[in-house]
Write a protein that binds this DNA or RNA. Structure first.
Lengths: 192, 192
DNA sequence: ACCTGAACACCGTTCAAGT
DNA sequence: ACCTGAACACCGTTCAAGT
């Protein structure tokens, strides 16, 4: 990679971060190139698809999330570890609006530049899930893909302006559906 | 409404139905006008916004859903009525891809042409919810907006090609989170 | 009263031409 | 090896001109 290429690459990612923060995951690629003072074709050679740009943009955060899952795997109790990671995942997709749609479609498309990240996140969560299932604190009839789907759907929900204020509250409802002990479900706790 | 206007109006809706079936809620308005053999400006005068077009396109189905809610309000048991209506709502948003995003944003935007339909659906579901809550079979700490948000999020989920096959299965997980008696939650049933 | 073509300002993609 | 301007085929919006 030549020096000028490297400089453009880094600068494009920095600018993309700003633009995507403002306009969400379907920000204009043209706008990014423009604000980076770079030819539009230059952007598209560095990042041939929108997914490729987001892969570069999110790689570090994705690796962090996977690392956090590994660390939580040795922390107890397993159900709390699962819920903590779920919460981290939701916080992650909230950083940029609309990225859970990208991850969801990438998960089903092996050719997507985000496919590797998508499946890595799914299986990181799956490991925490099976550990809680082995303990009996997570319901046994869901798998990693189900968990990933629920996380994506909840990420979509909190990304909707009208629903965002309900995020914290509905977080307990969703995690209450995944866990069996009702630890985050006040109603069921009262029934016991 | 002049005869030619009425004819164009009806024809546009019929064509829109086909195009939206093919391409989902963000189908090209231009494409609809083209396939209806009508000037683009004609489409935009009949339906000044995309939301206005969908309002006309979905009005009948929305009214049906609200009517079903009214009928279910007198049917027992209340928790089953709530779940049945939830299922109908999911089936509805599945008819065209991406419409739950329209309803979700319309719900937060009073100026949207879909705002009335959106709030009508929300309060139709809310009535079934409070009835089940009064009986104690639905968790007491959620309201109509929460239910609408969960329905929308689940509608988004089943609209994702990779997650769609999980729809029926995850339906039980979501409704299990809303109900307190675990009637659709095998794991909890086994625990009792 | 209703329709239309055309102009406008966008978008992503591609590629020949430049350094 | 890397960048760029321009062309291409799209998109939604608007409006003067037609019937």
């Amino acid at each position: 990679m030549r020096a000028d290429a490297r400089k453009n690459y880094d600068h494009l990612i920095a600018v993309a971060r700003d633009v995507v923060t403002e306009h969400g995951a379907d920000a204009s690629m043209r706008d990014i190139a423009r604000r980076a003072d770079v030819g539009l074709a230059t952007l598209f050679r560095h990042f041939p698809t929108r997914e490729a740009l987001f892969e570069a943009l999110l790689r570090m955060k994705v690796d962090e999330l996977i690392q956090q899952a590994v660390e939580l795997e040795t922390s107890n109790p397993p159900d709390e570890a699962l819920v903590s990671w779920f919460r981290e995942g939701v916080a992650f997709v909230r950083t940029y609006n609309g990225i859970c749609a990208l991850f969801a479609t990438a998960h089903a498309d092996p050719d997507s530049a985000l496919h590797a990240s998508s499946t890595a996140l799914r299986s990181a969560g799956a490991r925490l899930l099976v550990r809680a299932q082995a303990e009996g604190t997570a319901r046994a009839d869901i798998d990693g893909v189900d968990l990933f789907a629920l996380m994506s759907a909840f990420g979509w929900l909190v990304g909707q302006p009208g629903f965002a204020p309900r995020g914290d509250h509905l977080f307990h409802v969703i995690t209450g559906a995944i866990l069996t002990n009702g630890s985050s479900n006040d109603v069921k706790k009262a029934a016991f």
